[in-house]
Design a protein around this nucleic acid. Structure first.
Length: 270
DNA sequence: AGTGTATCCTGCAGGC
DNA sequence: TGCCTGCAGGATACAC
């Protein structure tokens, strides 16, 4: 569910809520969303204070006191929110009682999400296994072009692999490829340098505009206040199977490979 | 190295 | 109304 723009939106919300708050109690209602034993997870977090919140790819990274890092991957349906009386948190999995205010709740319908605890250096080495951040100023089209050149896998699959690029998921991979005019099945090492440059720029454009719109809600995604993202009307191909391309009026096609749907315009994307 | 398949889960839409 | 199938923003492990 949540890709880079959705996670970025949640991270920005959390920065207004949790820093300098201390965890007083933890309730694990669904042990399988927590890595390691429930007991260790709880005892490690009690008494720790949130210092800062950042994002790495699709991960919410909470830097805690005593050099601990709580890393949350939302999977398909994970949510974080402060519990409220009329809460739409239907599948609470973990509750954090803070030193003041309402509990912070991790809610996850399908429970594909994961909450992991690291010591700072261990998280650093874990983070190093992820690809570059597409929105980082020092991520250049040359980086993209050279890395694409070493892979023969379809470019849509390449973009989804978090070791190649961190944070891009199926919606924005398809949207960026459409904006760049590149067919999702093109072998990565088949892209020319100009095409790589266009794809690099398209990724930034698509991701920035999705962040401005606070993410895309197709079904389950909500921000920490329970509000939907507003980016869905901007989608040009994702989910638009058999509808007319806005650029050329051809019908958007849906194909499946690597077990995921790919949407593209057969005329705009060769 | 890459791909297809299965797995972890629940919920919803569509067909009958 | 109910039952069945397919599908969903992710990540990973496996066989080939």
């Amino acid at each position: 569910m949540p890709e880079l723009p959705e996670v970025e939106t949640i991270v920005r919300d959390l920065r207004l809520i949790v820093p300098q708050r201390t965890i007083k109690a933890v309730r694990v209602l669904r042990p399988n969303v927590v890595q390691g034993t429930e007991e260790t997870f709880i005892s490690t977090l009690i008494g720790k204070t949130f210092r800062s919140i950042s994002r790495r790819g699709k991960n919410i990274v909470s830097h805690m006191s005593h050099d601990y890092v709580l890393v949350i991957n939302l999977g398909m349906t994970g949510r974080l929110a402060l519990d409220t009386d009329n809460s739409a948190l239907t599948h609470p999995a973990v509750q954090f009682q803070l030193d003041r205010g309402r509990p912070l709740v991790y809610d996850d319908i399908r429970r594909f999400g994961k909450l992991r605890l690291f010591k700072e250096p261990d998280w650093e080495s874990q983070s190093d296994r992820l690809g570059p951040e597409p929105l980082s100023p020092d991520y250049t089209y040359t980086d993209l072009y050279e890395k694409l050149a070493s892979s023969s896998s379809p470019v849509r699959s390449w973009l989804l692999n978090q070791k190649n690029l961190a944070g891009v998921g199926n919606i924005y991979a398809n949207e960026a490829l459409h904006l760049a005019g590149v067919h999702p099945r093109r072998p990565s090492n088949n892209l020319t340098e100009p095409e790589s440059k266009l794809l690099h720029q398209s990724l930034k454009t698509i991701l920035y505009s999705a962040i401005e719109n606070r993410g895309t809600t197709l079904r389950n995604y909500r921000d920490t206040s329970g509000l939907r993202g507003r980016n869905k009307p901007n989608l040009k191909v994702y989910g638009r199977h058999e509808q007319a391309c806005f650029s050329c009026k051809s019908l958007v096609e849906r194909i499946v490979f690597s077990n995921r749907s790919a949407f593209f315009c057969p005329d705009c994307q060769r």
